[in-house]
Amino acid sequence: MVLVWKDILLEVRSRELVISVLVFGLLVAVVFNFALDVTPQRVTAIAPGILWVAFAFAATMAMSRAFVREREQGGLEGLLLSPVSRDAIFLGKALTNLLFMLLVEMVLLPVFAVLFGFSAMSFTLIGTIVLATLGFSLVGTLFSAIAAQTRSREIMLPVLFFPVILPVIIGAVEASTRAIGGETTVGLGRWLPLLAVFDALFLVICPWVFSFVVEE
């Protein structure tokens, strides 16, 4: 898809988005380490929370940055002037955001694993990350389009994003706790479906309402 190709090429050229978001994610990890005093005994209880707070904040940063870049020289305007359906534009932007976030997370995850000493490699964890990040990028792409057009846009995106995305954060933290803890998979059965239901629902709703957002 040409939109994704363009964004990747842009990112390869400027490298500003992924790098800055990565550094931000690491900072969150360091700050939380001191704020919560992570000891080996408590690591399974605390690490997933830190992981997802870092991912969620990094996601809002990445997505608001991505939309600002679209607006800088009128790129979004040019995009809207082309005969591409608004659904396709939304899905293209959401897919790009998904890919960028996954890239950031794939770098951050091993670093977190080393810093907090848990084992990162598990299919459950990867699955959780993919599902939750899809949810992030659907809701985040929609809301960053709204926030970019309003006054005080830096505040609007998190204000809109976090309440709506809360179930994803809860689900992701719970699923990760089980994946990292490696103990029982009890209760896992409901969290991944919860994430999947969230994704499916917003995969339908977001493209539809997006056309109203970019209408003017």
């Binding site: 929609l142 709204i146 309003t150 809109l160 709506v164 917003f202 977001c206 309402v209 109203f212 957002v213």
Partner: peptide
């Protein structure tokens, strides 16, 4: 329009 979108998604 924007608030309608938030009203639906929310």
């Amino acid at each position: 329009r924007y608030s309608a979108v938030v009203g639906i998604v929310g």
